[in-house]
Simulated assay, not measured.
Amino acid sequence: MFTLATWNINSVRLRAGLVARLLGDEAPDILCLQECKSPVEKIPVEMFQALGYRWIVARGQKGYNGVAILSRLPIEDAGHRDHARLGHARHVAARLPSGVIIHNVYVPAGGDEPDRTVNVKFGQKLDFLTDMRDAFRADRPQRSILVGDLNIAPREDDVWSHRQMLRVVSHTPVEVAHLADAQEAGGWVDITRQDIPQGPLYSWWSYRARDWDSADRGRRLDHIWATGDIAAAGHASRILRAARGWDQPSDHVPVLASFDLPA
């Protein structure tokens, strides 16, 4: 069995101490980070290696985007895709010795206005998801896990108010439909909702909230999926809500799941 975590860290260099805290407290075998905001060579890998996370694959950019996979299990770089040809570091893949592929994805946030005719960023988000869908249709994944900040809360109980969020980027019907198309094309199963099928689940709370915990206006933007051939092996899903209250936190919290699979 191995345990995997995903976390939009919102600057791995600024919050390296929080990453170390998570690795020490929860000890996931694999940690996928998004929004690292760092060139690969400036990620503080020595700190993580000292905690037993000897392997890393990453793609980085100065000040923006960036994805990394830290592991205490042997992994090898399995490449990346530049979805929609944006030139962004938003995807990296790693292969475990068993052949299981881990995809770490950071979908564009999409800006503030859910209309691609007036908001280029929203169009980029939809194009990114369409390209993901087409890639899965062309080469349907097997024995794969996909995690990351997908920047969409697909279900009504994945947001604090479905009615009030319908025109807010991250929960609009067009985004939800695009995400569903990508999920269906790859045969992906939502492991978190497989484990916890009912009730509100959030992994993000805005920095703008004066008291995020009491207001609890959250969204489930961070996901763990697995292909249908291994989805039954996924279990023990959890969202570390308490991490939102750590000192100088990310606005996202870690999401974890375990898999009864050989590494």
Rank of each mutant, 00 (worst) to 15 (best):
A89H: 03
A153G: 04
R220C: 14
G87S: 11
L126M: 12
I196M: 14
E113Y: 11
Q183L: 05
I196A: 04
R133D: 07
V189T: 15
T117G: 00
Y207M: 12
L150C: 02
R90N: 05
V159P: 01
G99W: 09
H162E: 08
W160L: 03
G111S: 03
E184D: 13
V107H: 00
W204M: 11
A180V: 06
V174D: 13
H223L: 00
G110T: 01
H223D: 02
V168F: 03
A209Y: 07
S170W: 05
D190C: 05
P97F: 11
R193D: 01
F122K: 02
R140T: 15
S170F: 02
W205G: 09
R137W: 00
R143A: 14
A93S: 14
G99T: 09
D222N: 11
P97M: 06
I191K: 01
R193E: 10
D134W: 07
Y202W: 01
G199Y: 14
A138Q: 13
E113S: 08
W212T: 07
H162Y: 08
T172E: 09
H162Q: 07
H162N: 07
R167T: 14
P114M: 13
V105R: 02
L201Y: 01
I196C: 05
A153M: 05
I102P: 03
E156K: 08
Q124K: 15
T172F: 11
N104D: 13
S170R: 09
L96T: 03
V105A: 05
W160H: 14
R133V: 02
P114I: 09
I196S: 13
W212C: 08
H162V: 09
Q198G: 01
A138F: 00
R167G: 13
I191Y: 01
D158V: 09
N104V: 07
D213Y: 12
V100K: 00
G218Q: 10
V159D: 01
V120F: 10
Q124R: 15
L86P: 13
L146I: 15
L96C: 06
R90M: 07
I196P: 08
G99S: 07
A109D: 07
A135G: 15
S214M: 12
D127C: 08
D211P: 05
V168C: 04
A94P: 02
V174L: 14
R217V: 02
Q198D: 15
Y202I: 00
D195G: 13
G186N: 12
D112I: 03
A153S: 09
L221K: 10
V168Q: 12
T172H: 08
Q164K: 14
S170L: 08
P108R: 12
R220G: 08
M165D: 05
L166S: 14
V118H: 11
V92W: 02
M165T: 11
Q183T: 10
D158L: 09
I102D: 04
G218T: 06
V120E: 14
I152Y: 00
A182S: 09
